[in-house]
Write a protein that binds this DNA or RNA. Structure first.
Ligand SMILES: [Mn+2]
Ligand SMILES: [Mn+2]
Ligand SMILES: [Zn+2]
Ligand SMILES: [Zn+2]
Lengths: 138, 138
DNA sequence: TCAACAGTTTAGAACTATTATAATGTAGAC
DNA sequence: GTCTACATTATAATAGTTCTAAACTGTTGA
């Protein structure tokens, strides 16, 4: 309960009540200078390491979905058995290491603008995302 | 059983026994000039329209996985709650229509080469795939 | 030709990520 | 403090997928 007033304001101004569960999850997700990728399961583990008060699985799901809806998290389409989430909500791209099964950010500035010479009538582009699959060089 | 000898050869030369279930699934997946995207559920429906002999769900899964392993199908990471497969195994990209929840191919020739100005030491690039999310233009 | 065997199919059970339910708890407004 | 809408929770339900183990079948080679 130190500099949590920031999260409390953030939550309240989003129309989300600043409950102790949501504040704790904010601390875990956003109290770091580095962004990261996680599954719900990863997050559950981080929570149980960080606190003695249990947060129910349903609340973890609810909170992640609420944060995604508010734009504080992005969902990454990588794997169909489990959802991956990203605390980096800026427009960026990814390496996917197929050996380590690990996602690594590529800054948008490190990808030259992607030119697509075809359109779909009546549709507008919402985002352009590049996924670079990599593997161990032998 | 007309020009199925092609599939029989293909299967046999891949080390897969040409069973009637596999041949039927080949007909549905590859007996078309157009490639397409499908879920397991889509395929199960196509099968029950195409034949009176049931193919068990386990066989549909087994077959799709076998074909993917042999490179006859690609799996597309559109993080839905189910896996999408693609009969187009060439290197290409996708539009994803968020309103229709529909995948549309982008020919590799319609995407200018993607330049990525960063690398991961010790890793080599396996593929570069672009996903363009689109929505209804208002 | 046909027995033997490995590969394949199958129904159903098991598994796992996720969502729904509905009762209890709590934040914020008045 | 009271009220109410929002939130949390344990648990059940759901749905896609994988596993199991028994029955079946394509292929081999004696
Ligand atoms: Mn290209
Ligand atoms: Mn699932
Ligand atoms: Zn990222
Ligand atoms: Zn495709």
């Amino acid at each position: 309960m130190l500099n949590n007033s920031h999260y409390i304001d953030k939550l309240r101004s989003s129309g989300l009540r600043p409950t102790k569960q949501r504040i704790k999850i904010c601390e875990i997700l956003f109290n770091t200078d580095k962004t990261f990728h996680f599954t719900i399961n990863d997050l559950v583990k981080k929570i149980s390491k960080a606190t003695n008060d249990k947060i129910s699985l349903a609340t973890v799901y609810n909170t992640v979905h609420a944060f995604k809806k508010k734009g504080y998290l992005k969902e990454i389409p990588i794997n169909s058995d489990q959802s991956y989430f990203d605390t980096n909500t800026s427009h960026h791209h990814h390496f996917y290491d197929e050996n380590q099964k690990d996602l690594i950010d590529i800054d948008d500035a490190d990808v030259e603008p992607v030119k697509i010479n075809t359109r779909i009538p009546g549709k507008k582009i919402k985002s352009v995302e590049v996924l670079v699959k990599v593997e161990d060089a032998e």
